[in-house]
């Protein structure tokens, strides 16, 4: 049930992202990262306004401010200050409770958005001539010998090493080398059965699916681009170790932090215009 739901959500988010995030492919990384963060910040702020009890939030926030001022105005009275502090704690709890509804409403879209953004910024595609490790995770069985799965070289990719079988971890690894640019499919064959995994080769931006996941809702949310393997499939997941993208705005190590702060700043700037209390 949950798997179907996530699958359904991923299908929708992939379709929307395909349109909305298309400009990322041709915009400079810093610009697309800034634009996306700003727009999502403002959209989230708007959603927050619509889903929260604004007047109650404003009242509570004002009460908190009043109590903080009271601490300085009436500081001579220890008992009064303690009472004010207790009230302050209660109001902080109330503020948290008032934020619960928007948090719940926004949690799912936010996870889906971050997963879509991670396709673009979490890693960069392989450059031509660059090598990467491909790992196939198999379903644990009682057999001590791993199945004879083959990765066929194509005109886009060459297999330079492998397969290396690790029975203890139920995985088989290959080293591949990128040959021509574009989004390609790696094809794995085991007897009659064929398993595929998307491979991105480019010198610029392409959506990079680092893993084709198993039918696990959490993995599916993290890696939304490819359809998950069925629960009874002998292959559970296939990973490609892409290189890191180096940039402080749209690079592997910092894109999310940059996105957080830019969206916060955008929301902060838009707050008086949208008249939002938080």
């Amino acid at each position: 049930m949950l798997v179907t739901l996530v699958l359904w959500l991923n299908t929708i988010s992939n379709s929307i992202a395909q349109i909305l995030l298309a400009p990322v492919a041709w915009l400079p990384g810093w610009l697309s990262a800034s634009l996306i963060a700003s727009v999502t910040g403002i959209v989230m702020l708007f959603v927050f306004k619509q889903t929260s009890n604004q007047s109650a939030l404003k009242r509570t926030r004002n009460q908190i401010k009043a109590n903080l001022i009271a601490l300085s105005l009436f500081k001579e009275e220890l008992r009064v200050c303690l009472r004010v502090q207790l009230t302050l704690l209660a109001q902080a709890g109330r503020l948290l409770a008032l934020s619960a509804v928007p948090i719940l409403v926004m949690a799912v879209p936010m996870c889906l958005s971050l997963a879509q953004l991670s396709l673009w910024y979490q890693a960069r595609p392989l450059a031509c001539g660059e090598q990467a490790i491909v790992t196939v995770h198999l379903k644990p069985t009682n057999n001590e010998v791993l199945p004879e799965i083959e990765l066929t070289p194509t005109s886009a990719v060459d297999v330079t090493m492998g397969p290396v079988r690790v029975p203890a971890s139920n995985m088989i690894c290959w080293k591949i080398e990128a040959i021509s640019r574009g989004l390609h499919d790696l094809t794995f064959e085991w007897g009659e059965q064929i398993f595929t995994k998307e491979l991105a080769i480019s010198n610029s931006f392409l959506p990079v699916s680092r893993e084709r996941p198993s039918s696990n809702p959490s993995s599916m949310l993290k890696y939304p681009r490819e359809r998950p393997f069925a629960a009874d499939s002998p292959v559970q997941s296939i990973q490609i170790e892409y290189p890191d993208r180096v940039s402080w705005t749209s690079g592997t190590k910092s894109w999310m932090a940059y996105w957080f702060f830019t969206s916060l700043i955008a929301a902060f700037v838009a707050r008086p215009l949208l008249k939002v209390d938080f």
Binding site: V47, K49, L95, P102, L264
Partner: peptide, 17 residues
């Protein structure tokens, strides 16, 4: 992180505490 609004609200809560 569940959006700037809720993020600020949460930050405000913790700041108040």
């Amino acid at each position: 992180y569940i959006g700037p609004g809720a993020g600020f609200a949460l930050a405000g809560t913790f700041l108040a505490v």
